[in-house]
Design a protein around this nucleic acid. Structure first.
Lengths: 219, 219
DNA sequence: GAGTGGTCTAGACCACGTT
DNA sequence: ACGTGGTCTAGACCACTCT
């Protein structure tokens, strides 16, 4: 007699939804009933359903019960990798080159503006324009910059942060056309990121990828 | 005497990481020790840490213990909205126009290929090229197509699915240039999606957005 | 007021991975 | 072999929200 696991319960519930035994909008049995039916503790049912609710498959309300989500919010979870790892995971050699570096102010905050080219097997892979708050960058030595990229230094040294990210498409600038050696198809994928530590803007990045680059995920 | 909640524990752990009491790579106390220290049950600590691990803040291994993540995988969670809602949320009027529709085969499966323009206040907002499996599309009446878009019908009627999504940038085709009325800056943001129900490809979509369109999220 | 999910507890056993 | 996290249980009390 095997125990019923929370994953068993999730499979069971998903199967019933797929088979349309429970349709979108339907109320499903409450935790206690399910626990009795399935022969397990209520806490186990709770964990199974809580996670399904997190995933947007079902909606739960105290007293209101649990329903199959009517318009499940499709959520896509992206991993934002360190570019070095992204390249090395493909079995290629990573390198980077700092094109320029100067002090600038952004929103009246002193910072450092840096332009970097990330390369895969010595071929330009992405172009990065970054501003870093000086308060943060002060911990960043010239020596470090020779060996690791700013972003990697940041993620290794700044454990927790929040921020925004957005994707868009732009035509390549003259500089980018030269860098990526492109002519006709000049549509670049642009990723913009802003990172904050408790209200303070730490760094702002614009990454551009050459035509053909894809960012993938699983729904 | 208030009970210690799993959220209290999460705050406590995050504070210690932010204050660098626990630095990236450090081993943190095991569940039992933490439970004793904080004065709560081990299960409560477990839930708190399990969720932080899901979020990529810490890494956990049986026997190996729990460490502050060295290179926290930055995860970005996107909501994939129904285009109609995306437009209506901006306070604009949604409409769509079916440009073409014909039977085609994809990977030896019979299906329907449909091209649709989604409009915001009657201005083209996105161009959709979609293939839908006929097995699925058979439930989709001509009548339905007049009132709701295919995608909306699908999310309302197909509760569970998995799939992939990817972003890239492409130059506008002749058709897209005319549709969006663009000339010089012709970089489009492209979203490709494939949706499966238990191994079977249900629908495959390519959405193109005109220059300037952004897809945003919070880290 | 009553029903439902949300959470905590104390104890137990198991699974994995390091040693 | 042993230490750690992973999970289940049975019971309890609480918080929300619908009627």
């Amino acid at each position: 007699m095997n125990r019923v696991t929370y994953q068993d319960i999730q499979r069971d519930v998903l199967d019933r939804i797929k088979s349309r035994e429970w349709e979108p909008g339907d109320l499903i049995p409450n935790e206690e009933t399910l626990a009795d039916t399935l022969g397990c503790a209520r806490a186990t049912v709770n964990r199974a359903l809580r996670e399904l609710a997190q995933a947007g498959i079902i909606d739960r309300k105290r007293k209101g019960g649990t329903r199959v989500s009517i318009s499940p919010i499709r959520k896509a979870l992206f991993d934002i990798p360190i570019i070095r790892k992204e390249i090395e995971n493909k079995g290629n050699k990573y390198s980077f080159e700092i094109l320029s570096e100067k002090k600038t102010r952004l929103n009246k905050i002193d910072g450092l503006s840096v332009e970097t080219t990330h390369k895969s097997n010595d071929v330009p892979y992405a172009f990065e324009q970054r501003w870093v708050s000086l308060k943060i960058a002060s911990g960043l030595k010239k020596l470090d910059l020779k060996t690791i990229s700013i972003n990697e230094w940041l993620v290794a040294n700044i454990p927790i942060s929040t921020g925004t990210i957005s994707f868009c498409a732009e035509s390549a600038s003259e500089k980018e056309r030269k860098l990526f050696n492109i002519s006709s198809n000049n549509a670049l994928l642009i990723v913009n990121r802003e990172t904050f530590i408790t209200e303070d803007l730490v760094t702002k990045v614009r990454l551009s990828y050459p035509p053909g680059h894809k960012i993938k995920t699983i729904l």
